[in-house]
Amino acid sequence: MGKRLLASALFAGLLAGLVSAALQHWMTTPLILQAELYESGEMVHGAAHAHDGAHAHEGGHDHGAVGAAASGHAHDHDHGDEVGLTERAANTFMMTLVAMAGFGLLLTAGFALAERLGAGRVGLREGLMWGAAGFACTQLLTGAGLPPELPGSAAAPLLERQIWWTLTALLSAAGLAVLAWAPNPARWLGLALLALPHAIGAPHPEELWGGAPPELAGLFVARSLLIGAVGWTVLGAAAGWLWSDERRAA
């Protein structure tokens, strides 16, 4: 059982991690690099607009304006410090793999526990539901208080945000479990657990002073959630499938 648990979790984590990391490299990392130019003062919100447009058109890029600007800046960095950027991309790939492997282990431990407690067998379809729940707990519900942020955004002290994030992820998981499995009138308490961290409220700074344009921040939030949804879908489906397949063979 231990081997099956580890194997399904780690293979699923690896697959979901590779998919997520590839999407991040394509869709969010260019936005992070661009935001760092605003963070360092190399570009200034407002003054930057005309420059961006000119840059994109001179380069002859025919994709969307923001994408063109983003890749233009990534190239600028490439010329300056190619090794640094490659190493940075490798680090991002590695840490996203580590995160997804960790989430995969938690998900699969959840499968095993639920089966022991008589909640029914987990296969691909159930795995998809678990993946959706994982996405809700670690991205959607946490993101409703602390949205994905570009570097240089205004934010409350790190520790306070980490505590709120952890509390929200745990309460959301508990809330979804109660909604799914508690007997009938009590199950609605799950909604209260889901709402509690938002009633308490996420820590936010008193003043907002983020340097990056809101257009960039909005794009980053949407892309980050999209990648999270894809990653957790792959993770849940793969973990559920591997778990059930190995179970049948055993």
Partner: peptide, 15 residues
């Protein structure tokens, strides 16, 4: 430092 971009993209609190 190694996890920076990944943390931002996954929306872990960072900085």
């Amino acid at each position: 430092d190694v996890a920076h971009d990944s943390r931002h993209a996954i929306a872990f609190p960072c900085h």
